[in-house]
């Protein structure tokens, strides 16, 4: 895969096949941490880090351990295990390095453990039979797509919260869900742009 191939992969992962809006992965943090742009940026950074690391580790584990021993059927449970350990590790590091970010992410940092976007990135990379570089680029691009949508959505929600015209019954979560669906429709426009 040349430079053009990687560019196409990035566009595909960020826009065409966006984790949140096209694959509906990682909806929980998408709804949960999108009230403030500040915490959305923190969450996006945490997810970017975790998915990139998880992609590398799961790729190495799959090709160095599972394939030689014919244990491909173990991939789901093994990946969950590794991702859980990884998230614990990231949590400890963030708690030490940036208590503010730790407080802002709150419950959602441990929730990355069960964030299907992380597992999805690892499993999709294997299903598509990407090589190491492709897996790495795909993981980062997918996480960037997740972060992009999360921050976009948080900015929209910040403005929506100030909008007095929102009917009382629609305030908060209902209008956020409708906004998310409209955003998803907008991203449908990218479909078919790049084929992978």
């Amino acid at each position: 895969m040349g430079i053009a191939g990687y560019l196409a992969l990035i566009v595909w992962a960020v826009f065409v096949n966006n984790f949140v809006l096209s694959q509906f992965l990682g909806i929980c943090p998408f709804m949960g941490v999108s009230k403030k742009v500040e915490s959305a940026v923190g969450m996006a950074a945490a997810v970017l880090f975790v998915i990139t690391m998880a992609s590398i580790i799961t790729f190495l584990l799959y090709n160095a351990l599972l394939v030689p021993w014919n244990l491909q059927y173990l991939q789901t449970i093994l990946f969950i295990l590794v991702i859980a350990a990884l998230v614990q590790f990231v949590e400890m590091v963030i708690k030490k390095v940036s208590p503010t970010l730790f407080a802002a992410l709150g419950i959602f940092l441990p929730l990355i453990t069960t964030n299907c976007a992380v597992l999805g990135a690892a499993l999709l990379a294997i299903k598509k039979e990407f090589n190491f570089m492709e897996t790495l680029v795909f993981g980062m691009a997918s996480a960037a797509g997740f972060g992009l949508v999360l921050i976009l959505f948080a900015a929209i929600r910040e403005r929506l919260a100030l909008n007095v015209a929102t009917p009382k019954a629609m305030k908060g979560m209902p209008i956020a869900l409708i906004t998310a669906s409209i955003l998803s429709l907008a991203f449908l426009g990218f479909s078919g742009m790049v084929r992978m």
Binding site: L61, L65, L71, L74, I77, L81
Partner: peptide, 11 residues
């Protein structure tokens, strides 16, 4: 044995 061993080892 191999399957559980591999999983336990990674754990």
């Amino acid at each position: 044995m191999i399957g559980s061993g591999a999983l336990a080892g990674v754990g």
